[in-house]
Amino acid sequence: MSFTVSSLPLEPFAPLFALDDAALAERGMLRVVADAPFAFPCRVTLDDAAPGESLILLNHEHQAADTPFRSHYAIYVREAAQAPASTTDVLPPALRRRLLSLRGFDASGMLRDADVVEGSAAEPVIERMLADPGVAYLHAHYAKPGCYAARIDRAA
């Protein structure tokens, strides 16, 4: 089964980079500078920031369904992000190199399936989960910190 991985859109986050650190702090956000490779995965580019790159660390509601599975957590967004990322039938770099928790939700936002898999071996698990007609979409999370990574849908 063909699938598409989609990042968060850039538009809601772009204005944040014009704010100073005090204004970010008032919103519960923090400007950070990547200090190690492969440690700061951006939710817009779906790749890691390089050391020295500026990012905003913020809390984001990624599962807005009015169910017990409603969820929000910390995410990074790179200042250098230019456009949202999307891939078909392959995981983007930041997901491919990490242990993932995949969560399958039905159309009303209730959890129907979940699994943990290395990103480099995730495609068959994604295909299996999306083969269930009761699963409307998947969320990929970085399994170790537990934070949201990207949405996965059946490809059109």
Rank of each mutant, 00 (worst) to 15 (best):
F38D: 13
S108C: 13
A83M: 01
P12V: 00
D66C: 11
A107Y: 12
P15A: 08
A83R: 05
Y142H: 10
F38R: 14
L99A: 12
A50Q: 13
A121S: 11
L57E: 10
D106I: 02
A25Q: 08
R112K: 15
G146K: 09
L130G: 07
I56E: 01
A107S: 14
R128F: 04
P37Y: 11
A136Q: 10
D20V: 00
M129C: 07
D35F: 07
E26A: 14
M1W: 10
P93D: 02
H139C: 07
A22N: 06
A143R: 11
R31H: 02
E127A: 14
I126P: 10
P84L: 04
V32Q: 14
D48P: 06
L99M: 13
I126Y: 06
A80G: 11
A74Y: 11
E53H: 07
C147D: 13
S108D: 14
A107V: 10
M1V: 15
V5L: 03
S120R: 14
A36C: 10
T4Y: 03
R103C: 13
A14L: 11
S71I: 01
M110V: 15
D66R: 12
G119C: 08
S6A: 14
L111M: 12
P133Y: 07
P124I: 02
P12T: 00
L55E: 05
T45G: 00
A14S: 09
H72V: 03
L99T: 09
N59D: 14
R27T: 01
L10D: 02
A50M: 11
G104P: 03
S108W: 13
G52D: 01
P84T: 03
F3S: 03
D35G: 15
H72F: 13
D115N: 09
L102M: 08
L19C: 02
A39M: 14
